[in-house]
């Protein structure tokens, strides 16, 4: 049983690392700022989420797991704010995304 939880924790750690890697790759690869914000968002949500999940599984059910749960909870509020602030400022100062505007 203990072994099983450890394996789950490892899998989730690898998944988290994979998403952080993908996000960093996207940060370098995508052509404009707006695309890069999405890549950073991937790191903030899935990357950190899976890493915290793996840490919770590894530490076992205790007070520490609640403390760890607070990390994604704070990220839940702060990461969209920073993403939105960057996007809004770029848009307001005249940087247009590389796309056609599709109004609906």
């Amino acid at each position: 049983m203990d072994n099983f939880v450890n394996i789950l924790s490892m899998i989730s750690l690898v998944l988290g690392s994979f998403f952080i890697f993908s996000g960093s790759l996207g940060l370098l690869k995508l052509p404009d700022l707006f695309g890069r914000i999405h890549a950073a968002g991937l790191i903030d949500t899935l990357g950190s989420g899976f890493i915290v999940l793996s840490l919770i599984l590894y530490s076992g059910f205790s007070l520490v797991s609640f403390k760890l749960l607070l990390i994604p909870l704070f990220l839940l509020f702060t990461s969209p704010v920073s993403g939105h602030a960057i996007a809004l400022f770029a848009y307001e100062s005249g940087l247009k995304p590389k796309t056609k505007v599709n109004k609906k």
């Binding site: 998403f19 993908s22 996000g23 790759l25 996207g26 690869k29 995508l30 052509p31 707006f34 695309g35 999405h38 890549a39 968002g41 991937l42 949500t45 899935l46 989420g49 839940l76 995304p97 590389k98 796309t99 056609k100 505007v101 599709n102 109004k103 609906k104």
Partner: peptide
Amino acid sequence: LTKEIVKSGLSTTKIIWSNNYSPELIKI
């Protein structure tokens, strides 16, 4: 929200790994 994040996170990852960048600007 977690479900939604995983769902759209997977498709974002797919877009990053394939060279398929065609963003859209929409009003909702």
